[in-house]
Design a binder for these strands. Sequence first.
DNA 1: TTGAAAGCGCTAACAT
DNA 2: ATGTTAGCGCTTTCAA
Lengths: 339, 339
Amino acid sequence: MSKKISIKKIADLSGVSIATVSRVINNNGRFSESTKAKVLRVIKENDYTINAMAQGLRNQKSSTVGIVIPDLNNSFFADLVGKIEQKLFLKGYSTIICDTNRDPNKENGYLKMLESKSVDGLILISGSKTSDTSSIPHDIPIVCIDRQSQNQNIMYVGSNHYQGAVLATQRLIEAGTTPSLVTGSRISTSITDRIQGFKTTMIKKNLRLQETSIIKLTEEQDNSPDTRRQELRKILRKLLSKSDTPVGVFAISDALAADLLIAAHSLLISVPNELKVIGFDDSPIAKYCYPELTTIKQDTNKITDYASSYLISSMQNHENTLNGKIKLIDVSLINRSTV
Amino acid sequence: MSKKISIKKIADLSGVSIATVSRVINNNGRFSESTKAKVLRVIKENDYTINAMAQGLRNQKSSTVGIVIPDLNNSFFADLVGKIEQKLFLKGYSTIICDTNRDPNKENGYLKMLESKSVDGLILISGSKTSDTSSIPHDIPIVCIDRQSQNQNIMYVGSNHYQGAVLATQRLIEAGTTPSLVTGSRISTSITDRIQGFKTTMIKKNLRLQETSIIKLTEEQDNSPDTRRQELRKILRKLLSKSDTPVGVFAISDALAADLLIAAHSLLISVPNELKVIGFDDSPIAKYCYPELTTIKQDTNKITDYASSYLISSMQNHENTLNGKIKLIDVSLINRSTV
DNA sequence: TTGAAAGCGCTAACAT
DNA sequence: ATGTTAGCGCTTTCAA
């Protein structure tokens, strides 16, 4: 039961004061090469590691950041989290993960906990709605991803969802369809941006928005793959019956697009001849669709690069010079085989 | 720039000593109802939150656990992490996530960091090989998932991979095939267990293990979906040409099974008539395969239940009563449409 | 029922 | 170049 060793023990063992040990650990202040060597040796021999809680208490910083996400099972979020965590670790930060499961109460609980743990920064990813900011820790840098906050002082980075929708809609129109947009039951700022991009493009191309232009699944329908597919079959039948040109669908996510493709398959609708589909995200599933899914790719590398460097720089210049900054990341159309 | 408020401030504001404040916060020791009310009110008014670093330093515990995984992009791992995190949060622990990207050096770095942060417990998920235990923090409870450790004193929980392979192999045999097993380039204790289950079942059923019984992709082939599928096509052609009964394949993961199905599709091989496939994991992709993938389901609810309650109980009875415990979780065969 | 004070492990200001 | 010490915010023993 080897108790954990403290700086004091190291000081005794190397015959110097704790101040000196602290200096060599932090490579700060001056000390002779010989003491440095000695102390370092003792540290290694006893494999001493600094006590981050004591250090944090003293320095008023934890070298920890919190990351709040709606759902780790969503591969897009998991991707973001993984990348951010890796980048932060390289800079000496550890990250506490908080999966809110889209529950606002839970989110509040997490925020309280994170404040209590004195996180140096916060990354807030998406989320149904911009939660009541009351429980947001005071005075620490925050960057939001895909979650617009009314609070002006929060940095924002996210894909240019609007642009993505424009790209998709244009492509579908160029392919000779009068596209419809199909969306799930969930709503968020990124979703509304996409819908807006769709609408604007339709109008710009002189296509009238009809009843079937924007189709929204109910929560119940969206609940499981099976109910979703069933509904999607109905939708497809209706769409196909109304049109003698190919039908185009911009699906709000790759998951939805994949379900759509399955529904089409079971209806013996041929893709991309009778039906053309574009998804959003370029999630791993896109390459497992049949045919492989044409989609809008979100550049998670860039998103996480910006997010983490924003956060780091504003954690370091404690004055937050980047307040209110907004960064929109370009998306791109990945041409595969569903258009 | 409202500085964070401390217990001292609360004490002053409520006209009591810090000791009393501490007592009411922790609901411990005795104090009058009236002081309790007063203190609580002041706390609420100033929305004070306890400083976890100070508390941790004093109590020698951080209420934090570390969770080390090979790859957050793998949906199976992400699932585990999400579930564990949620369960731990309910019990008052926050979790630091460490995505090693399968890099042993990085893993060591993470372990050092976690030790430094004084995590109260550790969850180690899978990983290529049981890493050199040298940098594992001393004397804290650890539970491994899908990672057998030579260290006797570490709890283990994982699926019964052997049983899963037996189930799959039997099913394939009963369906009239002489199954082959196809595996990726990666190796781990769970994979070897599955291979063992396959072999044993083959032998028990009086089927000879041939050259084509166990097929292993090289790292290069396994590198991208495209190279993988190309190789899988070769394999399928060979397998189909050798047999005039249906061909059965037990794929070591759902991802591999999905690639196999795609390869089969492009070869116009009909599933499940000419080819029968069983995967492993029941990952989200299984329901997006065409036909929907028959697979072995790992019960991540049970796995994470055991893992988190083992960990919690041994963090609480500081004496680790559960040392060396091993828990194998049953898997089940999910019948869908590829057999 | 409440308060005073020591001490968890560390850093930095001040002294030498 | 190195040592002494106060204090970060908390809990807990001891005293009142």
